[in-house]
Computed example of a mutant assay.
Amino acid sequence: MEHKVGTREEWLAARMELLEAEKELTRRGDEVARQRQELPWVRVDKEYRFDTDDGPAGLADLFRGNSQLLVYHFMFGPDYTAGCPSCSSIADGFNGSVVHLANHDVTLHAVAQAPLAKLQAYKRRMGWTFPWASSAGSDFNYDFRVTHSAEEWRTGSVEYNYRQLDVRPLGAADLRADLVELAAGTGTDFPTYRQQGPGVSAFALDEEDGAVYHTYSSYERGVDAVWGMYPWLDRAPRGRNETGIWWRRKDEYPRR
Rank of each mutant, 00 (worst) to 15 (best):
E2W: 04
E2L: 09
H3D: 12
G6T: 15
G6A: 11
R8E: 12
W11N: 12
L12I: 15
R15G: 09
L18Q: 10
L19W: 15
E20D: 14
A21Q: 13
A21V: 08
E24C: 02
L25K: 13
G29K: 01
D30Y: 13
D30P: 08
E31T: 11
V32K: 01
A33K: 14
R34E: 01
Q35F: 11
Q35H: 11
Q35T: 12
R36M: 02
R36F: 00
R36H: 02
Q37W: 07
E38F: 02
L39D: 07
W41Q: 14
W41A: 15
V42I: 12
V44Y: 02
D45C: 10
F50M: 02
T52R: 11
T52E: 07
D53Q: 12
D53H: 11
G55V: 08
P56W: 02
A57N: 05
G58M: 03
F63T: 04
L70S: 08
Y72T: 06
F74C: 15
M75V: 06
G77N: 14
G77Y: 12
P78D: 09
P78H: 06
D79I: 12
Y80F: 15
G83R: 05
C87R: 06
S88F: 02
S88H: 05
S88L: 02
G93L: 07
G93D: 13
N95A: 11
V98F: 09
V98I: 06
A102N: 05
N103C: 00
N103Q: 11
H104M: 04
V106I: 04
H109T: 09
V111F: 00
Q113R: 14
Q113W: 04
L116I: 05
L116H: 03
Q120N: 02
Q120I: 12
A121K: 01
M126F: 08
M126Q: 10
G127P: 10
S135Y: 01
A136Q: 13
F140S: 00
F140M: 00
F140N: 01
N141L: 02
Y142C: 06
R145Q: 04
V146M: 03
T147H: 12
A150S: 08
A150K: 10
E152V: 11
T155I: 05
Y160E: 10
R163I: 12
R163C: 13
Q164M: 09
Q164Y: 07
D166V: 03
V167R: 05
R168K: 11
P169G: 01
P169A: 00
P169I: 01
A173Y: 01
R176P: 13
A177F: 09
D178F: 01
E181K: 09
A184Q: 01
G185S: 06
T186I: 08
D189I: 05
T192E: 06
T192D: 04
T192R: 09
R194V: 08
Q195V: 08
A202C: 09
F203T: 08
L205M: 02
L205W: 06
D206R: 10
D206L: 05
E208L: 14
D209T: 13
D209E: 06
G210T: 08
G210A: 06
G210Q: 07
H214D: 11
T215Y: 03
S217P: 13
S218A: 09
Y219W: 13
R221Q: 11
D224E: 13
W227H: 14
M229R: 14
W232E: 06
D234F: 15
D234E: 13
R235G: 07
A236T: 07
P237C: 06
T243D: 10
T243V: 14
G244Q: 06
I245W: 01
W246D: 03
R248W: 00
R249H: 14
K250D: 10
D251W: 04
R256W: 00
